[in-house]
């Protein structure tokens, strides 16, 4: 029995460590292209951008919102915490808006791809897991 305790402790430590890393989306960082003419964005403004109700930055540059792919934890967390809608109703909404002449958010398949896209495309704004600030982008806020 005594010999079993270290294994049990090790298992508990592993479980605890697992829970610490199993929720990478508890904090998301909002990032924008270095040229975006704002220093910060609150969630209300971010919602307006992703719901396509705000389409240009104050200097006239087109806003290009960037989403993660539908199955990602980040997208699900962002949809729930910021946009407050189910994935399905958002997909339906963007389909309708696309038909009406709006451009739904661009989809990128990883945090690295989002960061690269935002870095390279003027007016782009997206979200990534908040662990390390990528080079060449502007941090516009954080979602907890």
């Amino acid at each position: 029995m005594r010999g079993f305790v270290p294994y049990l402790l090790a298992a508990l430590i592993c479980l605890n460590a697992g829970s610490a890393t199993a929720a990478p989306t508890e904090r998301l960082m909002i990032i924008g292209n270095a040229n975006v003419p704002v220093q910060a964005i609150d969630t209300a403004e971010l919602t307006r951008i992703f719901m396509l109700k705000r389409t240009v930055w104050p200097d006239g540059t087109a806003i290009v919102p960037v989403n993660r792919e539908a199955r990602s934890e980040e997208r699900q967390y962002f949809s729930k915490q910021v946009l407050g809608r189910s994935m399905r109703s958002l997909a339906s909404y963007w389909n309708h808006m696309q038909f009406k002449g709006f451009m739904p958010p661009v989809v990128q398949e990883s945090d690295a791809a989002v960061a690269a896209f935002v870095r390279n495309v003027p007016g782009a704004v997206g979200y990534i897991v908040a662990d390390k600030v990528p080079e060449g982008v502007r941090v516009l806020g954080e979602i907890k």
Binding site: V106, V107, Q108, F117
Partner: peptide, 8 residues
């Protein structure tokens, strides 16, 4: 043709 996103 500077960028294109993955097709869905």
């Amino acid at each position: 043709a500077a960028y294109a996103d993955d097709y869905k």
